[in-house]
Amino acid sequence: MSTINMTKGSASARMTKSSSIRVRCWWDSRTDYDLYALVVYTDGRVKTVATFPAEGVPAQLATADGAVKHLGDVGRQAIGVAEEIIEIALDDSIRAVIPVAYSAQSNGNGSFFEYRVSMELDNGLGDRVVVTAENANDNSRIYTCVPGMLENTPDGVSVHALEHYSKPKSEDRPLVSLVRRGLMKKTEVVAIEMDAGPRNAYK
């Protein structure tokens, strides 16, 4: 078994592609975070897998093709660790999956560092990549974090530790797009713009 621990600024990690990759996000259960995913397809489409809606975006627990599935919402508990899981069956139509951790302002203040919000990717073959909370943002009024990104490449899976954060008090989702750059438009980049997407519905 190989486990790689990553923090913001770490070089990307490689993972063997498998038929099922599990994304697990966990935190101190005294608060109520939610995990959702933005799924980028090779044709430029972006779909959202989430247990709750946003403006104009209904809650969908799975993509239409069933490739990316959310295993369900968990709530607040008095003590312990809460976790939510997204399962990914990669195929050639998927370019990237971007997990997002979010807590509505109505849940109260508390930082990603305070509640130790962390993410793990596991390919079921013994490869694990963990983006830890050691260097997480400690601003208690920031409610959205993109811990990392999974990129589907011909050579396997690349995992990037991003730790992108929303502006304080923002309820807007990140906006993700597939951009082709360069003179011949052959360089393909997954662009993530924080606070540019639809606003999360009240939870």
Score class of each variant (00 low, 15 high):
residue 175 L to W: 05
residue 156 G to S: 06
residue 188 E to T: 14
residue 188 E to W: 01
residue 173 R to L: 11
residue 167 K to Y: 02
residue 159 V to E: 04
residue 180 R to D: 05
residue 162 L to M: 10
residue 161 A to F: 00
residue 182 G to Y: 00
residue 178 L to P: 00
residue 159 V to Q: 04
residue 174 P to S: 11
residue 148 G to H: 10
residue 165 Y to F: 13
residue 154 P to K: 13
residue 164 H to S: 07
residue 154 P to I: 12
residue 189 V to W: 00
residue 187 T to C: 02
residue 163 E to L: 07
residue 187 T to F: 00
residue 185 K to R: 15
residue 190 V to R: 02
residue 153 T to S: 14
residue 168 P to F: 09
residue 147 P to H: 13
residue 174 P to D: 13
residue 154 P to D: 13
residue 153 T to N: 10
residue 163 E to W: 04
residue 188 E to I: 03
residue 152 N to K: 07
residue 187 T to S: 04
residue 153 T to Q: 14
residue 171 E to T: 13
residue 168 P to G: 08
residue 168 P to K: 09
residue 150 L to F: 08
residue 180 R to L: 08
residue 190 V to K: 01
residue 150 L to V: 15
residue 156 G to H: 09
residue 178 L to R: 06
residue 173 R to F: 03
residue 155 D to A: 14
residue 163 E to S: 10
residue 162 L to F: 05
residue 161 A to I: 02
residue 191 A to T: 11
residue 168 P to T: 08
residue 165 Y to S: 03
residue 169 K to R: 15
residue 170 S to I: 07
residue 176 V to M: 01
residue 151 E to H: 03
residue 181 R to Y: 03
residue 190 V to F: 04
residue 164 H to K: 09
residue 149 M to W: 03
residue 159 V to T: 06
residue 189 V to K: 07
residue 168 P to V: 07
residue 166 S to E: 06
residue 167 K to D: 08
residue 148 G to P: 04
residue 185 K to L: 12
residue 179 V to A: 11
residue 181 R to W: 00
residue 186 K to W: 02
residue 160 H to E: 09
residue 159 V to Y: 04
residue 191 A to S: 12
residue 151 E to R: 07
residue 164 H to Q: 14
residue 177 S to P: 00
residue 166 S to G: 13
residue 169 K to F: 07
residue 180 R to Q: 15
residue 148 G to W: 08
residue 174 P to K: 10
residue 163 E to Q: 15
residue 189 V to S: 06
residue 185 K to A: 15
residue 169 K to P: 01
residue 187 T to A: 04
residue 172 D to C: 09
residue 161 A to P: 02
residue 156 G to M: 12
residue 166 S to P: 00
residue 157 V to Y: 10
residue 161 A to Q: 06
residue 157 V to G: 02
residue 164 H to A: 13
residue 183 L to C: 01
residue 188 E to V: 13
residue 154 P to S: 11
residue 147 P to N: 10
residue 160 H to D: 05
residue 182 G to H: 07
residue 151 E to G: 04
residue 168 P to Y: 10
residue 161 A to W: 00
residue 155 D to R: 12
residue 147 P to D: 15
residue 156 G to P: 06
residue 185 K to N: 14
residue 176 V to I: 15
residue 183 L to V: 12
residue 149 M to Q: 06
residue 189 V to E: 15
residue 191 A to D: 08
residue 162 L to K: 10
residue 149 M to C: 06
residue 154 P to M: 14
residue 180 R to H: 14
residue 149 M to N: 01
residue 186 K to R: 15
residue 190 V to H: 05
residue 166 S to H: 12
residue 184 M to F: 09
residue 174 P to W: 10
residue 176 V to F: 01
residue 191 A to P: 01
residue 165 Y to Q: 03
residue 188 E to Q: 10
residue 162 L to Y: 06
residue 160 H to Y: 09
residue 174 P to I: 09
residue 167 K to G: 02
residue 175 L to M: 12
residue 171 E to I: 09
residue 149 M to G: 00
residue 169 K to H: 10
residue 173 R to E: 08
residue 183 L to P: 04
residue 156 G to I: 07
residue 147 P to F: 11
residue 160 H to F: 08
residue 174 P to E: 13
residue 168 P to N: 09
residue 183 L to H: 08
residue 147 P to Q: 15
residue 175 L to N: 11
residue 187 T to E: 05
residue 176 V to P: 02
residue 172 D to K: 12
residue 164 H to I: 10
residue 184 M to G: 05
residue 149 M to A: 13
residue 189 V to D: 09
residue 165 Y to K: 03
residue 189 V to H: 03
residue 166 S to C: 11
residue 163 E to K: 14
residue 169 K to E: 12
residue 164 H to G: 05
